[in-house]
Amino acid sequence: MRIPDNYPQQLSDILDVHMSCELLPSRYCVNFLNIKEEFNRFFAELKLNRARIADFFGRSLPYGDNAAIAAIESFECRKNFKDAAKKLYGNKVKPLDINNLELDNYDLILINLEFGGLSDHGMPLWLNEKFRKHHKVFGYKYNLPHQAKPEGSLFYRSDDNEEINTLAEFNWYKHMVSHVHQGVKRIEREYLTLFDLNINY
């Protein structure tokens, strides 16, 4: 895809990959490298090394080629995103089997909160029952543009045209943080907000 001169050429390839998987060249795609950068910064702060990650609904996993990550297991039912992740990272990404989920097998657990706003994807409400004190667990959401105001966007669409209900997403968030009694630690970035779901505080 033709992109402005002041954008990195790499972005053109990323947009092409997403469009070939019938995904929109959306804000998420255009900011793929910015989101990746914010994840990289976050991983550096966590001091990850050869990490194994369990990811829930991480779309095309913008952080996938981070050198500190050895393996990713992804629970992503949306075929188009799954295809894009496969094209971007090949066999580094494996499907996550939530029927036999053992969180001790992972160094980091990431949960995209939009998961909760989607219907018909088998949202595992029991997920936070499996959190233990030694787990690094973070929820995250992709930030909407600054101008988007909540009253105008109860629903928004992910790039595969699935409607996300922000109210249901919020309920899922409340459920996921229900074990945290002293306020949720947030890490706010421009494109990404992360929520510490560890139960050790």
Binding site: S26, P145, Q147, A148, G152, S153, F155, Y156, R157, N161
Partner: peptide, 14 residues
């Protein structure tokens, strides 16, 4: 464009 159907027809929209 992947937006709600009536987007941009209400004054509160982006």
């Amino acid at each position: 464009e992947g937006r709600p159907r009536y987007f941009a027809t209400r004054n509160c929209d982006e």
